[in-house]
């Protein structure tokens, strides 16, 4: 039997992997993918809580759907900015983005 704890541990591991990716990756697209992993961890959390704590209410599932939609919008704008940057600077490597530094 899979319990709530299993889901929460899975979400925590997924969140940590995403966090690790955001911090260590240098490619802007890879950083966006790390953020997506973190958001999916939150979705697992919400759906699991909703299923185990408040099974009659689907508010957790609704929240997860909203997060998926907003994440898609965010990635769209993020990728648009990355394309504009690639055109202007010929790089999307985070280490080389140091035009702004003191």
């Amino acid at each position: 039997m899979i319990s709530l704890t299993h889901y929460l541990v899975l979400a925590a591991v997924l969140f940590s992997i995403g966090l690790f990716g955001v911090i260590t990756k240098r490619n802007a697209i890879a950083i966006l993918m790390g953020i997506e992993l973190m958001l999916n961890a939150v979705n697992i959390n919400l759906v699991a809580f909703s299923r185990f704590i408040e099974p009659s209410d689907v508010v957790g599932q609704v929240f997860a759907v909203f997060i998926i939609v907003v994440a898609a919008a965010e990635v769209a704008v993020g990728l648009a900015i990355i394309i504009a940057l690639a055109r202007a600077r010929q790089t999307i490597d985070a280490e080389e983005l140091h035009l702004l530094k003191w």
């Binding site: 900015i81 940057l85 035009l99 702004l100």
Partner: peptide, 16 residues
């Protein structure tokens, strides 16, 4: 370049 770089830094760190 500088404005787009700022926008990328903003959206990545705020989404994070």
């Amino acid at each position: 370049g500088a404005a787009t770089e700022a926008a990328l830094k903003y959206i990545l760190l705020n989404a994070f």
